[in-house]
Nucleic acid binder design. Structure first.
Length: 351
DNA sequence: TATTCGTGGCG
DNA sequence: TCGCCAAGAAT
C-alpha cells in the first residue's frame, strides 16, 4: 500500500471542486471558516499601517510564538510607537528592542523605511503597492501584506504558508523555489484573491497554512477547503530545493573579569554588526577553557569556546571594559550573553 | 540564481 | 542529539 493509497483511504477526501473553477465558492468557504476560527493576534486588532509593517518585518522567517510569546512586538511599539520615533532611533535602543529576534538587518531596514516615510512621504504612510514596495526591507510579500491587512486593498500575498496551501490545493509538482513556480503561485494568489475582502481573504489563507494545512502531515479532515484540494499526498508538498549543508566552525573567545568589568568587542561589520561580543583572540596555551557551547547561525554550526584570559590582556581596537552590572543594557547575541552568564556564575566549571 | 542573514522549538 | 525550518529581502 502506497502512502497515496493510505491517504485516500480516509485521511484526505478527494476533491469535488476546483478552486479556479469555483472561485466564489472557494472564497466563501475560506472566509466563513476564518470568521469562525480566525485567531486574535495583536496585529489583527489594528489597521495602523506602521504597526502592521512592524509585525510583518518581525515575522519574516520568524515564528509567531517567538514574536508574541517573548513580547517583542508589544515592547517594540512601546519604545517606537510611530514612524517619527523609529526614524530618530539610535542604534543601541533599536538593536536592544530586536535582541534575540535575529536577522538584525531587519531592524535597521525598518528604521530606514520609517525615515523614508518621514522624509519622502511627509510622515504619511504610503498606500499604494509601488510606494510600499519601494520601502527598504519591504518585498513583494510584505508590501501585499500591508496593503491588504492595513488598508484592506486588493493585493495578493505569497509567503511560506500560502505557498504551501496553494501548492497542495493545486497539486503543484515542481519545486516552489524556482522562478517559474513562484510566478505560478503569485498568479494563483491573484486569481483567488477576493478583491472585495482582501484583508480577511489573505489572513485566512495564511492561517490555513499554519493550522490545518501545516507543514508535514496536515489535518485534511478538518480543513474548510478540502473539497477544493487537488493533491493526493499533501505530506509531500510543497517540493523544496536542497538546503545548504551546515559547516562546523570554532570560535575561540576570551573572558576576562577585572575590577568588576568584562572585556567585550563591538562587531564592526557583517552579521550582528553593532552588537557586543566576547572578543575573539589568539588563545595562549595556559588559558583555561572555562565554557563551551554550540549555537547555529545561518549555515554555520558554531562551537563557542571561552577561555579565561590572564593578566596581560588589554583592550584592543573596538574593545572596551563593561561593568558586570551594566551588561543587561548592552546589546549582545544570545549565545554570548548566555556564555558570559555561565562564566560569571561559575568561573571554573565547563558547562 | 544562489547565498546570506539568527534564533529557538520541536519530533 | 540533530535536522528541519518559520508571516522574506537583499545582494
Amino acid at each position: 500500500m502506497s502512502r497515496g493509497d493510505r491517504n485516500r483511504g480516509g485521511l484526505k477526501p478527494r476533491a469535488k471542486h476546483h478552486a479556479l473553477h469555483d472561485v466564489p465558492g472557494f472564497r466563501s468557504a475560506l472566509a466563513a471558516w476564518f470568521g469562525r476560527e480566525g485567531k486574535d493576534y495583536p496585529w489583527r486588532r489594528t489597521t495602523d499601517p506602521y504597526e502592521i509593517l512592524v509585525s510583518e518585518v518581525m515575522l519574516q522567517q520568524t515564528q509567531i510564538a517567538t514574536v508574541l510569546g517573548r513580547g517583542f512586538y508589544t515592547r517594540f511599539l512601546e519604545v517606537f510607537p510611530d514612524t517619527r520615533t523609529l526614524a530618530a532611533a539610535e542604534d543601541e535602543p533599536l538593536l536592544k528592542a530586536w535582541e534575540g529576534l535575529g536577522y538584525y538587518r531587519r531592524a535597521r531596514m525598518l528604521r530606514e523605511a520609517a525615515r523614508a516615510i518621514e522624509n519622502d512621504h511627509g510622515g504619511c504612510f504610503p498606500d499604494t503597492l509601488d510606494d510600499i514596495l519601494a520601502l527598504p526591507g519591504v518585498g513583494r510579500y510584505t508590501a501585499g501584506a500591508v496593503m491588504s491587512f492595513a488598508f484592506d486593498r486588493p493585493a495578493p500575498i505569497v509567503d511560506g504558508n500560502v505557498a504551501r496551501v496553494l501548492s497542495r490545493l493545486m497539486d503543484l509538482s515542481e519545486k516552489i523555489d524556482g522562478s517559474g513556480a513562484q510566478k505560478t503561485l503569485w498568479g494563483w494568489a491573484g486569481e483567488l484573491l477576493d478583491e472585495s475582502n482582501p484583508r480577511v481573504h489573505n489572513s485566512a489563507l495564511m492561517e490555513l497554512g499554519q493550522s490545518y494545512c501545516r507543514p508535514g502531515v496536515p489535518d485534511c479532515l478538518g480543513c474548510p477547503v478540502s473539497a477544493f484540494c487537488r493533491c493526493s499526498e499533501p505530506e509531500l508538498l510543497p517540493i523544496k530545493g536542497k538546503r545548504v549543508k551546515m559547516t562546523e566552525v570554532d570560535e575561540s573567545v576570551v573572558f576576562v573579569l577585572r575590577e568588576g568589568k568584562v572585556l567585550l568587542r563591538q562587531q564592526e561589520e557583517g552579521r550582528r554588526v553593532g552588537m557586543w561580543r566576547l572578543p575573539e583572540r589568539e588563545i595562549e596555551k595556559d588559558w583555561p577553557l572555562v565554557h563551551e557551547r554550540k549555537y547555529g547561525i545561518t549555515r554555520y554550526r558554531v562551537t563557542l569556546k571561552v577561555y579565561e584570559g590572564a593578566e596581560g590582556v588589554e583592550a584592543g581596537q573596538g574593545e572596551a571594559w563593561h561593568p558586570v552590572d551594566e551588561l543587561s543594557e548592552r546589546v549582545m547575541p544570545p549565545a554570548d550573553r548566555a556564555a558570559l552568564a555561565a562564566c560569571l556564575g561559575s568561573d571554573e566549571e565547563i558547562a
